[in-house]
Amino acid sequence: MSMQRICIVGPGAIGGMMAVHMQRAGYDVSALARSTKVAEINQKGIKLLDGGQTYTAKPKAAVDARDLGPQDLVIVTVKAAGLPWVAEHLQTLSHPDTAWVFVMNGVPWWFFHGFGGEHAGTGLQSIDPGGVLSTALPADRIMWGVINCNVAIEIDGTLNHAHSNQLQLGRPSGSLNGLDTVANVFRAAGYNTDLSPTIRDAIWGKLLVNMTFNPLSVLTMATTDLLLSDPLVRDLAIKAVDEGRAVGEALGIASGPSGAQRFLAPTKPAVSAKTSMLADFERGRALEVSPLIGAVVEIANLVGVSVPFTKALYGLIRLRSQISAQTNPI
């Protein structure tokens, strides 16, 4: 399967960096985005600071998928709220062999597809009310990426890659069919890419950090190192992570180290970084509350695991998000 024509859907921090490096690697890269982002890309391209070097790419950018045509690989890097918009355009960007890769945070709409024992097939109302996404974006077609890559958007729109470029790719079914071809594209662009037959483990392992630090960062306006430096906040983070681990374990998910192992005896010093949710909050954007923490509460209720600290965080950040939306309507 040829992988020459690539479209990045939602070229923000993560997707923008992919666009730059994939174009540098020789691929024919385009971008599908909202009108303001398209105007920005068409005017000045995408500028990336990475490893002490400055790179600029100018992929063809469009609001309408018909202006880009069918692609060999479509990489979706939008926030969860943008998925209905993606579903409107994805078929136009595709031919029968087009690979769809979603590189996103949080619990996906297909989480219980062929998984979960007695809960298999359960739809998550916090993520996909009415099953709209499950119909439009069928799990059998999906490849999923879990990325560890810190990229910030500076005031002038420049992307600044601070650290990490690790990616895990998998399918909801656990099959590795076709993944290596896609992984080679990411590898050519400089990403350390591994294949996973248990992608839910990777999703949940990253989720434990996101469901904790993202809400805490917005509630306190603090970077991750400051959150961990306060013993009371750190203790809350430990408790929330351990609740999340218990939910995952009830479904047979290997969630990695405990909260204490992560935050009391870390293998690396805490990095001073803004979470993606804090960056969105500061820019007046909608917060990814449901996929990062609301779905955890829904799944906890489903499997009968008590998560009082997680529920408290969920209530607080949900209210903060509602007030923010009223103050900064999108």
Rank of each mutant, 00 (worst) to 15 (best):
M1C: 05
M1W: 02
I6E: 04
I6V: 15
I6T: 08
I14C: 03
M18T: 02
H21F: 13
M22C: 10
Q23T: 09
R24M: 07
R24P: 07
R24T: 12
G26Q: 05
G26N: 10
G26I: 04
Y27T: 12
A31L: 08
L32G: 10
I41N: 07
I41E: 00
K44N: 14
K47F: 00
K47I: 14
L48R: 14
D50I: 00
G52I: 07
Y55P: 01
A57M: 02
A57F: 01
K58A: 11
K60F: 03
A62F: 03
G69L: 03
Q71I: 06
I75V: 15
T77G: 12
P84G: 07
W85K: 13
W85C: 02
H89C: 09
L90R: 11
Q91M: 08
L93R: 09
L93C: 11
S94P: 14
D97N: 14
W100I: 12
W100R: 14
V107Y: 12
P108A: 12
W109G: 04
W110E: 04
F112L: 13
F115T: 11
H119D: 05
A120R: 05
S126M: 10
D128W: 08
G131A: 06
G131T: 08
T135F: 01
I142L: 15
M143E: 05
M143L: 10
G145I: 03
N150Q: 13
V151R: 06
E154V: 01
H163P: 00
S164G: 00
N165K: 13
Q168M: 10
L169V: 13
L169P: 05
V182N: 05
V185K: 10
V185L: 13
F186M: 12
A188Q: 13
Y191Q: 14
Y191W: 15
N192H: 13
T193A: 08
P197L: 00
W204Y: 06
W204E: 04
W204A: 02
G205V: 02
G205Y: 04
K206V: 09
K206H: 10
L208W: 07
M211H: 01
N214E: 07
P215A: 09
A222L: 12
D225C: 04
L227G: 11
L228V: 11
S229A: 15
S229L: 00
S229H: 14
S229Q: 15
L232W: 11
V233F: 04
R234K: 15
L236G: 02
I238C: 12
K239W: 01
A240M: 09
E243P: 09
R245I: 15
V247C: 10
G252E: 03
G252H: 03
I253E: 01
A254M: 05
G256V: 09
G259W: 03
G259D: 09
A260I: 07
Q261H: 08
F263K: 11
F263S: 01
K268M: 05
P269L: 10
A270L: 03
A270V: 05
A273W: 04
K274G: 03
T275G: 03
R283A: 15
L287E: 02
V289H: 09
S290Q: 14
P291M: 07
I293G: 09
I293T: 02
A295W: 06
V297A: 15
V297Y: 06
N301C: 00
L302K: 11
S306P: 02
Y314S: 13
R318F: 00
Q322S: 12
S324P: 00
N328M: 09
P329A: 04
P329D: 01
